[in-house]
């Protein structure tokens, strides 16, 4: 009936390969899904008979729960397979494991993996729709989408909006997905953090780079703080958490530099007192819990798009 829908999506591997129109279509569908999540009967029959397998080779209870809830709200069947229960630790290769999973005929595999490119690797080798739930330091596209959703929900059109992303850009897949998504939607993106955490050539992803946080936060509409991994503290990237907080953390004084309406975001889980001061995390400008809520809606939209595209292709259309 319509021209090929912009919602058609064979896999979701990253936001880098999506167009602005595709991202917008997914966000619009997420709005539809969010309305479902606010009803008393929080369920749609849309993905009846669809099997969604969550394959987490790296731990993340929250992301996994969010995907499972999203799948269930669409009436899909879900199965979980995680590294602790898997044979990956017994020397089986990723490909062998994936082929075993494929034999159970899932329609969609949601994969979290510590190696960048692992979802793409699977998408080229097994016949399921692949949804990337975070790969190494590469991308975390559903996190990027839920962040974009939250920003768009609060601020409207993101064109020209100043978004500051602060912290360990080098090791953050959340930062990369946000950079791609925000760039495509026309936002003015600034990244900041200690220079040890700013990777070479990051400006090529479409952002302005600062070695100190103040110029990035100055006049920002959104301040997104990234999680500082515990293992990065006290090694060669930063001396210790206390110093990080003093020079790179978001406290009330630094937040004053941003617009009065500025949103405070964090992909979670937070280290209170490290990258973010408790009073800011719990403050009026924080939309951190809304990010979590929107995550389910965004993942429903993604699962719908991938499952329906797969359905379409299985018809040979």
């Amino acid at each position: 009936m319509n021209a090929p829908s912009t919602l058609q999506l064979r896999h979701l591997l990253g936001l880098e390969e999506l167009s602005a129109e595709q991202i917008t279509a997914l966000l619009d569908m997420a709005a539809q899904m969010k309305a479902v999540n606010q009803r008393r009967i929080k369920k749609l029959p849309t993905l009846r008979g669809v099997t969604v397998l969550t394959f987490f080779v790296e731990n993340s209870t929250r992301t996994k729960m969010s995907f499972e809830l999203a799948a269930k709200r669409l009436s899909a069947d879900t199965m979980g397979f995680s590294a602790s229960t898997s044979s990956l630790s017994k020397g089986e290769t990723l490909l062998d494991t994936a082929r075993n999973l494929e034999a159970m005929a899932p329609d969609i595999v949601v994969i979290r993996h510590s190696s960048s490119g692992a979802p793409r690797f699977l998408s080229e080798r097994i016949g399921c729709g692949i949804v990337n739930a975070g790969d190494g330091a590469h991308e975390h596209p559903t996190q990027g989408l839920l962040d974009l959703y939250t920003m768009r929900d609060k601020l409207g059109d993101l064109r020209g909006r100043k978004v500051a992303i602060i912290g360990d850009i080098a090791h953050s897949r959340v930062a990369r997905s946000n950079l791609h998504g925000l760039h495509k939607l026309g936002a003015d993106v600034h990244v900041a953090g200690p220079a040890t955490m700013l990777p070479p050539g990051v400006h090529a992803l479409g952002c302005t780079v600062h070695a100190r946080v103040e110029p990035a936060i100055d006049g920002a509409d959104v301040v997104m703080m990234l999680r500082i991994q515990r293992e990065r503290q006290g090694n060669d990237l930063i001396p210790h958490a206390h110093e990080y907080h003093r020079f790179f953390g978001l406290d009330a004084a630094r937040l004053q530099l941003a617009q009065p309406h500025a949103l405070v975001m964090h992909p979670g889980p937070m280290n209170r007192g490290v990258e973010i001061a408790p009073e800011v995390a719990d403050g009026a400008q924080s939309v951190i819990l809304e990010q979590v809520e929107n995550g389910v809606a965004v993942r429903m939209a993604v699962l719908y798009a991938v499952a329906a595209t797969r359905g379409l292709e299985s018809q040979g259309a």
């Binding site: 619009d28 539809q32 309305a35 849309t46 379409l312």
Partner: peptide, 22 residues
């Protein structure tokens, strides 16, 4: 009432945008 996500032709026609909110 928006029925996009209740249709039975998803497998024939692929994903489509909602017509609007219910």
């Amino acid at each position: 009432l928006d029925i996009t996500l209740y249709r039975d032709d998803m497998w024939l026609k692929g994903p489509r945008a909602a017509e609007g909110q219910t």
